[in-house]
Structure formats: structure tokens, C-alpha cells
Write a protein that binds this DNA or RNA. Structure first.
Lengths: 295, 295
DNA sequence: ACGCGATTATGCACTTCTGCGGCGGGGTTG
DNA sequence: CAACCCCGCCGCAGAAGTGCATAATCGCGT
């Protein structure tokens, strides 16, 4: 059984293409790297690198072996992560709140199960309600929100939130589509009711179509989607939801005034708590996947 | 970065439950095992084992870590295997011959792709023909056969080959089923034609139903299956094929005289050639899966 | 053509690790 | 109860590994 540590040197040399650079990256002397790698080659019985004046270069055989070594390294990283979790007592529940329509996308995507795989002792719980939960009161630990920033919370942008104006296909066939934002008052509009009167979509509608009586009002984004789908009128929706509905068509392109950033937020007191920090680290590492979920 | 070699000690101790036994299995002294394991615990910052008079026992945390360590070990094993392949120049093609109906099962099962994963530089080729290929002439390298042993070839049993007498469902409905083997001459029988007159199924049929004129004859096992399915008559089939056909029913239980062992065979000159030996090793290791294929 | 910088390889002193032998403890079996 | 076996732990001497300094090699730019 050969020396498993020598795999570290092999990997480092493969990456830095020289024993000196590899040694530095490992916090070891160049001599050691050179000798351990030579020892590994002796144990294997085949050369792994070509000695060049400019440094080491993997041989063909070395290239073939590299992915195997990387799998070992990945397994070790998992092992270390598990240890780290234990050291920081990463157990318990993380209560996540986000707009209801997002929850389904979250759970259907591989995001949550990947998190479970990485932190088996942490559990994610989605909590939601018809109003914004108050993280300061501990109603949830973290939130995905695209609204305006709450000064009390800290967080990081994870994606863009784009809004556009949608109508149902049948509506467009019967009544046509608005030519521009200024044309909106000539169409029946759907929007939020008074409970969400300060939502930026409500404000924007009052701004571009003052004095217009709404043909329908709802108290949730999802309600808005259904109202537009039913053909009651046209209205602004998050592009992620509108585009996902085959019955809806985007009649006015992205509305600058309504666009915000999706942010992952937490109360500053909680942000550095290990299990919350772990969630942040994970989400930021998986930012690309998160973007497709919130798209 | 902790000492990867210490994982070996952890694994050995987990398996042997004592540092002495672990040391022996690793060819090392007991002191080393005990010290390395203590060092690993120090690096991790958590105890992995409980010291008992009877030896070491994994703690709860150790149990949790064990599967991770085993994954690392498995990855290392792959790495070593790859090296071994290179050392023995495991490249090239292995020509496998077997009865035609088996080929489909082989390729559909995970067997072949597992072999590819284990020996990426080896390729498996199935060769077949209407007659038995002659391994001595190099027409193929190895063969799966259930027939009688060819003295010139060497090999190992990998599964049982069971034959029974089958009839189509419609045949049974119209004409009933034979009560015993002795009843067979009263039914229309299907069997092999003269090209396979020495096949043990042909010999058995002549024995239990002499003087009977066959209602249909074919030159392959697969032909036999179709003949029985079409209702032309009843006849002996490998249970693996007969049971797989929903239209067929087994009318007479396993026939002792027709049962043989499935064997993996090769010419003795080839048996120890690295790539053939590798194939043998693999098939024997996967014997359970092979049994379900040949079942 | 020649020096500069980056690289690999090696000699030497020092540190660390390993194996051996021995000790003490706790079961188990006559 | 006593002998025995298997166990973990520890001190010591020898073996192996590590770092530092240095030599040797090669490409590149001036």
C-alpha cells in the first residue's frame, strides 16, 4: 500500500507545474515535493511527470491518473467537511422564508438535496405566510427576497429579479396588446389590494395609470398570476413566473422601475452563527443554480 | 491538511476493533497504529474510538465518519487498479462468445459498463455465429457456455443452467398439458434440426419420445422459443428464456438430464494472459449479477 | 554571447517517526 | 485463584523524512 499523502504532492505538482510552486502551495519545501513525487513514481513503477527546465509536466499516464487522484481528493474534502460540521456543531433547523411560488421551484430543483448531502445534520424548513415574516422577531432565520432592502437585515445579492407586464393569450387575441406603458390606462388592469399598497408594483401602477379603477385586486403575487391568466386584465408579474406560464404572453418588456435584486437576507445577529453561515456559504457557492431557480 | 495515511489506520481499527489486530493486518507495529490514531483524533479534535479493555470501539462520531473514509478508500482502490492495469498493459479487445439470446441481456445489464469503468482501456466485443466458435482456433477469446465441457478449455462455473418443457398459453388451453415426461410422445414436439442433432436436448428428446415425428425443427435455441410461442408444439427450453416469455407456460418442471452449469471458458494458453485474467476476475467478482443474467 | 531567473537535483544537519521490548490491566479458563 | 492471553500505553534507539543551502541545467531577453 503506497503512501496516500503522496497523492497530495502529485495533485499539487499537476496544478502548479513545478515542485517549487507546489511546495509553496503546500507550505513545504521544494526538496520534499520533488522527493515524494519521485517516491510515488517509484512505487507506481511508471513516470508521472516529464522533467523539463521550465518545470514538471504530466506524462500521458499522469494525465490518466489525475482524475482518479482528484476523486480521492474530493472524497477527502467531504470527510473534512463532515469533521468541520461536527466541530461547529452544525445541527438543527434553518427556517427559510421566500415568496410562495419559489418554494416549489426550490424543492423540485436539486438545491435542497445537495444541501442535505453536504450538511446531513442540518434541516431546511420553509416557512411562509401571507405577509412578510419578520426576521428580527425570529419568525424565520433567513429570507430570499427581491423587495427593497430592509436596513436592519444583512445579506448578499444572489440573482436578478425582473418584472414585465403580462396578459393571457385569449386576452391578446380579443383586445390586442398595449403599445407602450403609456397605453396601459386603456386596458383593464389587475394589481394588489390595499394590504400590499406599498409594494413597488402597486406604486408603479398608480404612477403609470393614475385614476384607473382596477378590474381585479389580489393580496399575493400568485393571485396576480391567476388573475391575469383568467383574462380579467393585464398586469405586472415577475418574469420568472410569467414566462413559466404557457397561457401568458409578455406584452411589455422588462420594467426597469420594478426590477430589483434577489437577496439572501438574515438578521446580523444570526449571520455569523455557524448553521446560518453554512447556509450562506452553500447558497453563494451554488449561485448559478440559484439564479436558474429565481430566474 | 491532516495526514491522509492516518485514514488507513482508522479504517483498520474500525474493522479489527483493536490496534494490535489492525497493526498486524497492515504489517505494522501496534504502537504505530495507536499513535497514528491518537494523532488523527488530535487533528480532528474529537475522539473517534472508545478505549476499552477489550480493544477499541468506534464512537458515534467515528461511525458517522466511517462511510466517508470508506469512500476515500474505494477511490484509492480505483486509483491503484488503474495503475495495475497500466503495469500489466491491460489494453486491447476481449472477444466474448455466448449464445445469441444472452448477448442482449448482457449488454442491457450494467455488467459491461461496469467492466468498462473498471478497465477503461479494455474493450469487449461479442462474436457469435450459428455454430460453436472454436476458441482453440482463436475465433474468440472467452466463451459463456452451458453445454458439456470441452476438455481442451479451462474455466469456472458461474451459474446454473436449467431447462424445462414449455408450451404456449393458447396451446395449453386447446390441447391441455402433458402429465409427465412419459406423456410427451402424445404431443406435437419441436426440437433442433440435424445440424444440432448431438445437442443434449436433441438426444433427450430422442430418448423420451423415440419414433415421434417433430412438428417443427429449428437450428437455434431462439428458433425453438419462437416455434413454441407460435403454438406449433411443445418443447424443452432454457428456463431463463421460457420464464421470460409471458406467452409461455412451463408444463414440465426442471429436467435434470438437460441441466448443466454455465461456465466461463478460455483456452489454457490464454487464461493467464493479463487481459483475459482480468475478465475472469471481474466476472467471478460479479458472479451474482451474472447469475441473474444467465438465470 | 552572456548573464538572469526559474527550475530540478543533492549533501548535510536536524527533526520526526517507527519498531522493539517491557509494563500494567482486565477478562477467561482451568 | 492463578495462569494465560489480548489489550493499550510508554521509553529508547535506530530509521526515515524534512528543510536549508547549494550545485547544475536550461530558456530567454538584451
Amino acid at each position: 500500500m503506497f503512501d496516500w499523502n503522496d497523492l497530495k504532492y502529485f495533485l499539487a505538482v499537476a496544478r502548479h507545474q513545478s515542485t517549487i510552486a507546489a511546495g509553496k502551495s503546500l507550505g513545504l519545501s521544494q526538496s520534499t515535493v520533488q522527493r515524494r513525487l519521485a517516491e510515488l513514481e517509484r512505487a507506481i513503477g511508471q513516470p508521472l511527470v516529464e522533467r523539463r527546465p521550465s518545470g514538471y509536466r504530466l506524462t500521458k499516464f499522469g494525465e490518466e491518473l489525475l482524475p482518479h487522484a482528484e476523486r480521492i481528493e474530493a472524497a477527502v474534502t467531504d470527510f473534512e467537511r463532515r469533521i468541520n460540521d461536527e466541530a461547529h456543531d452544525l445541527t438543527g433547523v434553518i427556517r427559510v422564508t421566500c415568496p410562495e411560488p419559489i418554494i416549489g421551484r426550490m424543492t423540485k430543483s436539486a438545491l435542497i438535496e445537495r444541501f442535505q448531502a453536504r450538511h446531513p445534520k442540518l434541516r431546511i424548513e420553509f416557512v411562509t405566510s401571507d405577509r412578510y415574516l419578520d426576521l428580527s422577531k425570529g419568525e424565520a432565520d433567513v429570507a430570499f427576497r427581491s423587495g427593497d432592502t430592509d436596513d436592519e437585515l444583512v445579506g448578499r445579492k444572489v440573482a436578478d429579479s425582473i418584472w414585465a407586464v403580462y396578459a393571457s393569450r385569449s386576452y391578446v387575441e380579443q383586445h390586442g396588446r398595449p403599445a407602450a406603458v403609456s397605453d396601459l390606462p386603456n386596458h383593464p388592469l389587475v394589481g394588489f389590494d390595499e394590504t400590499l399598497s406599498m409594494h413597488r408594483a402597486s406604486i408603479w401602477l398608480r404612477d403609470v395609470a393614475p385614476e384607473v379603477k382596477m378590474s381585479a385586486r389580489t393580496n399575493s403575487v400568485l393571485g396576480l398570476v391567476y388573475a391575469v391568466k383568467s383574462g380579467l386584465g393585464i398586469g405586472p408579474l415577475p418574469a420568472s413566473l410569467g414566462d413559466a406560464e404557457p397561457d401568458l404572453v409578455r406584452v411589455l418588456g422588462p420594467i426597469q422601475e420594478l426590477s430589483r435584486s434577489w437577496r439572501l437576507l438574515a438578521h446580523p445577529d444570526l449571520r455569523r452563527v455557524p448553521r446560518i453561515a453554512a447556509f450562506f456559504d452553500f447558497i453563494l457557492a451554488e449561485r448559478e443554480l440559484v439564479k436558474t431557480i429565481l430566474a
